[in-house]
Amino acid sequence: MASALATRYSQVRARTLALAAPLSPEDAQLQSMPDASPAKWHLAHTTWFFSRFVLGDAASAMPAGWDYLFNSYYVGAGERHARAERGLVSRPTLAEVLDWRRRIDDRLLERLERDDVDEAALDVLLLGTHHEEQHQELLLTDIKHAFWCNPLQPACFDAASAPDCAPPSMDAQSGTGADWLVRDEAIDWIGAAPWPTAGSGFAYDNESPRHRVLVPAHAIAARPVSNAEYAAFVADGGYATPALWLSDGWEHAQRRGWQRPLYWHADGTREFTLAGWRERDPDAPVRHVSFYEADAFARWAGARLPTEAEWETAACRLAGAGRCWEWTSSAYAPYPGFRPLPGTLGEYNGKFMSGQQVLRGGSCATPPGHARATYRNFFAPPSRWQFSGLRLAKDPD
């Protein structure tokens, strides 16, 4: 197990560095809004996780003040620097953070080589690699927003390597040959077995326990809503029709001046990507819409958003999953019998089960192999900077 984990750890850590490689030290310092973090902070925080929770380093074993700077929201681990002020931390430098990553990697890999990591720490190490993969996606979404906020709106990657420029697959464009997947009422199973358990694959604690649900009769769209379909909503005055919107969604849209998805150009044909401005692909799934926008579009289309149970029980038949995170109508809440991880790591998911909506699927920025049918992503309803789109559902006629 230790050998396999050492390989996975090295691969994940190397991928984070590869994603950050195009960034200058100035780029890596940017924080464009409180919800986003600088790339340098992502590089440091993921290292802090392994230092603190796998190697067992105390604050005094880290460079002075770094435990305070690079903790995120683990109250049990001590005081933390304010999230909205991470972009103000010009020191340590990017070079110092990268050097720290190398030193932590060397120590951890050396201990794995000596088989000097107990079983509990190996479990945390595996969790840490999945945690870092989450931050790989956040690094991309955060730098995209930062570059879009720059008046020059520069490109971070060339089109061939930018994850949001890849052409949609054929199944994402045309579905499975049917517009809707119809299902009768049924009792089904969703969720994952609690991790870690013998023989079970990795899953976050919020995906467990596996449990039975009553899924009413419904139909779910074979593919996500496309750019062309969402453009029709925009052209039909969707952003100017209050009857389509939830009350707080309408307030957000009016106060923030929403008229189209985030990163769509006012010219109606282009969108901002990690490769800069590109012609918008009409067949690609619409991305960077909030829960409120997704809900309003569904109402305009005479449909609704699926529940997470409807989404998960149909996941093996859905086309286009993985091109964008898909909003569901389900509030982020604990499953019956939910038990968070013990200790400080129990803060990872459970304490956010208030005021959030569940998204399912995965996105073009999600690391390969990271997402799964039971994965429960979650964001606040106004969030738009993630690669979030939607899929429709409807009740029987």
Score class of each variant (00 low, 15 high):
Leu5Phe: 01
Leu5Cys: 10
Ala6Asp: 08
Tyr9Pro: 04
Val12Pro: 03
Ala14Tyr: 01
Thr16Asn: 02
Ala18Lys: 13
Ala20Phe: 06
Pro22Val: 10
Leu23Ser: 10
Ser24His: 06
Ser24Asn: 07
Glu26Gln: 14
Gln31Arg: 06
Asp35Gln: 13
Ala36Lys: 03
Ala36Gly: 13
Ala36Gln: 10
Pro38His: 04
Ala39Ser: 14
Lys40His: 09
Leu43Gly: 03
Thr47Ser: 14
Phe49Val: 13
Ala58Ile: 00
Ala59Asn: 13
Met62Leu: 15
Ala64Pro: 04
Asp67Gln: 12
Tyr73Asn: 08
Val75Trp: 00
Glu79Thr: 12
Ala84Pro: 00
Glu85Gln: 15
Ser90Asp: 11
Arg91Val: 06
Arg91Pro: 00
Val97Tyr: 04
Trp100Ile: 10
Arg101Ser: 06
Arg101Thr: 11
Arg102Glu: 14
Arg103Ala: 13
Leu108Gly: 07
Arg114Cys: 05
Asp115Pro: 02
Asp116Val: 12
Asp116Gln: 12
Asp118Leu: 08
Val124Ser: 04
Val124Arg: 12
Leu125Glu: 02
Leu125Lys: 06
Leu127Phe: 14
His130Tyr: 15
Gln136Arg: 09
Leu138His: 03
Leu139Asn: 10
Leu139Val: 06
Asp142Trp: 11
Ile143Lys: 03
Lys144Gly: 08
Cys156Phe: 11
Ala159Asp: 12
Pro163Thr: 08
Pro168Met: 09
Ser169Asn: 03
Met170Leu: 13
Ala178Glu: 14
Leu181Phe: 05
Glu185Tyr: 02
Ala186Phe: 01
Asp188Arg: 14
Asp188Phe: 00
Thr197Asp: 04
Tyr204Cys: 04
His211Gly: 07
Val215Leu: 15
Pro216Gln: 06
Pro216Phe: 12
Ala219Asn: 02
Ala222Gln: 07
Arg223Cys: 07
Tyr230Arg: 06
Tyr230Ile: 08
Ala232Val: 08
Val234Gly: 01
Val234Glu: 11
Ala235Gly: 10
Ala235Arg: 14
Ala240Pro: 02
Arg256Trp: 07
Gly257Val: 06
Arg260Gln: 14
Pro261Asp: 02
Leu262Val: 05
Phe272Leu: 02
Pro282Glu: 05
Asp283Arg: 13
Arg287Thr: 14
His288Arg: 05
Ser290Gly: 12
Ser290Leu: 09
Phe291Val: 03
Tyr292Phe: 15
Asp295Val: 01
Ala298Gly: 13
Gly302Ala: 10
Ala303Val: 04
Glu312Asn: 09
Ala315Asp: 10
Arg317Ser: 15
Ala319Ser: 14
Gly322Pro: 08
Ser330Asn: 07
Ser330Ala: 11
Pro334Tyr: 02
Pro336Val: 04
Gly337Arg: 10
Pro340Leu: 11
Pro342Gly: 12
Leu345Gln: 08
Gly346Ala: 11
Phe352Glu: 01
Ser354Pro: 00
Gln357Met: 15
Leu359Phe: 00
Arg360Ala: 10
Ala380Phe: 00
Trp385Pro: 01
Leu390Asp: 02
Asp395Ser: 15
